[in-house]
């Protein structure tokens, strides 16, 4: 669950775990979000760290507060997460992929063929 060898701070990992819960439909729009204390217990971490994870989701408008009741998943949370992951995570991976392909002199055709193979679940046998 938590990776201590990652460059990502624990609170970012908590935020991403929550995002995955939304992506996987385990938490739906307008469902109540975990509290910082539930997360602290679940992940065995200081509640302040868990709280920062929740704050990150609030800042990204993925959840909203109801006074005295806690936080709830926004309407558009899932779409926003998909959009953000495409722009950030996926784009970073693509940049790295292209960089490595350039190092290795892999042509566009070969690169695309490899991606196609990977999507089909096989390995490239060029």
């Amino acid at each position: 669950m938590l990776n201590h060898k990652s460059m990502k701070p624990i609170y970012v990992q908590i935020a991403e775990w929550l995002e995955n819960e939304i992506l996987n439909h385990r938490i739906q729009a307008h469902d109540k979000m975990y509290s910082q204390y539930q997360l602290a217990e679940l992940f065995n971490i200081n509640p302040a760290t868990a709280g920062k994870g929740i704050t990150k989701l609030l800042d990204d408008d993925l959840i909203y507060k109801k006074r005295g009741l806690g936080t709830f998943v926004s309407d558009e949370a899932r779409l926003r997460i998909i959009q953000k992951r495409k722009e950030e995570t996926l784009q970073t991976l693509i940049d790295e992929l292209v960089l490595e392909a350039d190092y290795l002199n892999v042509s566009d055709d070969e690169l695309i063929e490899r991606i196609n193979q990977a999507r089909k679940g096989g390995s490239y046998d060029g």
Binding site: Y37, A40, E41, N44, I45, N46, P47
Partner: peptide, 13 residues
């Protein structure tokens, strides 16, 4: 002990 400390702290900050 660490787990007990955390749970005790969550219950009574």
């Amino acid at each position: 002990f660490y787990r007990a400390l955390l749970k005790s702290y969550i219950a009574h900050p």
